[in-house]
Structures are given as C-alpha cells and as structure tokens.
C-alpha cells in the first residue's frame, strides 16, 4: 500500500505579542490508503491543531504554519493557494468535528446542506445531487431519508446529527477523513452505532481515517496504528496491540493505566502527577520530564529525538537510547 498522506516536520506556531507559542512542533505522520490512524493525547497537546494544519484551517491571525510539508497524494497542501485549497477541502479531505450541534447550519435543511456540498465539488445537476444525498443518508443509517432531507438540524438528536455530518463528509468520496473526537459528545449506545458505521466505511470506500481522540477504548475499536502526542510532538508511534500491551514511553504507559477498568478491580488509580504544560512554558529538555517518574538528569537537560526501536515502533525517550544503539549495531 502506498502512503496517502505524509506530514514532514510540521510546525504550527502561534505569535502572541512578542511570544512564540510552538503548539505543533515538528510532527511527522504517515497514513496509508485505507488505513485508520489514531492521534492520541490530552487536551493542549496539539492533536487538533495538527488536523487543522492539514486542512489549512489554523486560526488566523496569530496562528501560522511556519515549516514543514503536508503531502496528500503527491500534492503539497501547504503550497496551495486559498482557492485551490477550497477545492481540496471536502473533495479530497473532509472533516468531522466533535460538536455535531454547532457544525451544522441551523437555518438550512439537512437536504440543502448536503446538496450544496455535492454541487460545489461535483459537476452534477440539482436533482442528481438530491438523489445522491438521499442515498448517502441511507448509507449512514437513516431509514426515512426523504423526510430527514426536509428536516432542520434542531429536530435531530446528537447521534443523528453526527450521522448527517458523516454523510456530508462522505458526499464526495474523500481520500482522507479527519475525525476530531467524533463520538466524545455522544452517549455510549449512540457511540457504538457511529463506530460501527465508521468501521464499515473504511472497508466499503477504502477511505483513510485520521482519528483524533483521547479515548483509548475508541482507538482500539477503530485504529490500526496509534500516534501519541505530548507537548506538540509525537512521543510514540506503534501498532495498536503494541501500544496497549507494551507501551514504551512512560507517558503512554501512564495514559493507559489511568483509565479505570470496566472489568477488573483496582484499589487506587495510577496517576500522572502534575498538569499538561501550556505550550508557551515547555520545559528545557524532555517536555514530559517534570511529570515522568522515570526521569533522570539527562532528561531535564537534553531534548530526546523520535527514534525507531523496531520495524513498527518509534519512541521519543532517553530510556531506550541503549536499545536503539544496539539495533543500529545489529544492522
């Protein structure tokens, strides 16, 4: 399988007065065709901003992509003009947001909103677009699609609105679907419906999904590979099995262990001490060092690089430096 999206050394900074805030600081990411990748991390780690950078929707003024390449199927998105980018959005890359309540237009019917997207990106007549819209609504599980077309968003429940969002996102068969916390605002039973739906989509349309979430349960449902972010950087990248059973980075380990279990019994939850640092106050050295229980002197003074420690796993941590050298020696 070829790579659909490659991000190289992406840096998105915010400029506020005289301060420079490195919200996304050198992210590398690869997504193959038909693959689902999860971007995991706590709030403020830069995961949403990475996705906004791909879409070139970084909040302006203040935010700017200062360095790096975003290659989608051979086209560098960072070099496109705004007009060209408009054509890419929705057609090649589309996005589902966390809040289905606020991302639909309240004064337009569901039908209008779907038809608009289809007419904008494809050369079809209005009746054709309408037909296609109804078809899409059926795909995402509405049995009364014709009636839903005439409904306004406020008439639908959260789960239904999120399905409408997915229908809009799919309307032009995008190559890449970015789902930013698609189920966080939904109840578990509705979440289960949406996850089933998204799982089906990757199989049926061969769409790649970049899933952004903090819920490791959702991740293990959908994703094949996981990228863990902390402080605007990737700290670990590995297949899902490896992450859950054998996490390398102390942060990943802490993240997994602090989730209370649905089945087992634990007396006290594992915690990561302290708080997520805000991007303008990153410590010198490793950004996780002040909260890390395994930190040693070197962690506070030097900044570790992301290094591969096996074929599929890479980690940004000094603890595995020896292992990396061994690997190199063997090669």
């Amino acid at each position: 399988m070829s790579d659909l999206l490659t991000i190289e050394n992406l840096k998105t900074y915010f400029f506020k007065k005289k301060k420079v805030i490195p919200a996304v600081d050198g992210v590398d990411l690869k997504i193959k065709k038909g693959e689902t990748i999860a971007l995991v991390g706590e709030s403020g780690c830069g995961k949403s901003l990475t996705s906004l950078s791909i879409m070139r929707l970084v909040p302006k003024p203040g935010g700017e992509i200062v360095e790096g390449k975003v290659n989608l199927d051979g086209v560098d998105l960072t070099k496109l003009t705004e007009n060209e980018m408009c054509k890419v959005r929705g057609r090649d890359v589309s996005m589902i947001f966390q809040e289905p309540m606020t991302s639909l237009n309240p004064v337009l019917t569901i039908g209008e909103q779907l038809i608009e997207v289809i007419i904008n990106h494809q050369k079809v007549s209005r009746p054709k677009a309408r037909e296609k819209s109804i078809e899409l609504l059926k795909i995402v599980g509405f049995s009364r699609a014709e009636e839903i077309m005439k409904d306004f968003p406020h008439r639908l429940s959260g789960g239904m609105r999120q399905r409408v969002m997915i229908a809009i996102a799919l309307s032009c068969n995008p190559k890449l679907l970015i789902a930013d916390e698609p189920t966080t605002a939904l109840d578990v039973t509705i979440q289960a419906q949406i996850l089933e739906l998204m799982k089906g989509l990757t199989k049926e349309f061969d769409t790649s999904i970049l899933l952004i979430t903090h819920d490791l349960g959702v991740v293990s449902e959908l994703a094949e590979r996981v990228v863990v972010m902390y402080g605007g950087q990737v700290v670990e990248e590995a297949p899902i099995d490896s992450i859950l059973n054998n996490p390398y980075h102390p942060y990943t380990d802490g993240l997994i262990q602090s989730v209370p279990s649905l089945t087992g019994e634990i007396k006290e939850l594992h915690t990561i001490k302290g708080n997520v640092p805000s991007p303008d106050q990153f410590p010198k050295g490793c950004r996780f060092a002040p909260r890390c229980h395994k930190a040693f002197d070197r962690c506070f003074n030097e900044h570790p690089d992301l290094k591969a420690i096996s074929d599929s796993c890479s980690v940004r941590c000094f603890l595995y430096e020896d292992k990396q050298e061994e690997e190199e020696y063997n090669v």
Binding site: M160, T189, I190, Q191, A192, S220, D241, S261, T263
Partner: peptide
C-alpha cells in the same frame, strides 16, 4: 455495558456487542 469500547489488551475476552437501534 457491551457498548463501552474497552482497550483490547492481550488475554481480554472478546465481548459481544449489543448495538441498540434508535435513540
């Protein structure tokens, strides 16, 4: 209970999901 997505670790039993229809 079956709808809650759980991180699948080794040794965890595969649970059958009951997907409820509707809202």
């Amino acid at each position: 209970l079956s709808a809650v997505p759980v991180p699948k670790k080794h040794g965890a039993t595969q649970r059958e999901r009951i997907t409820l229809k509707g809202d």
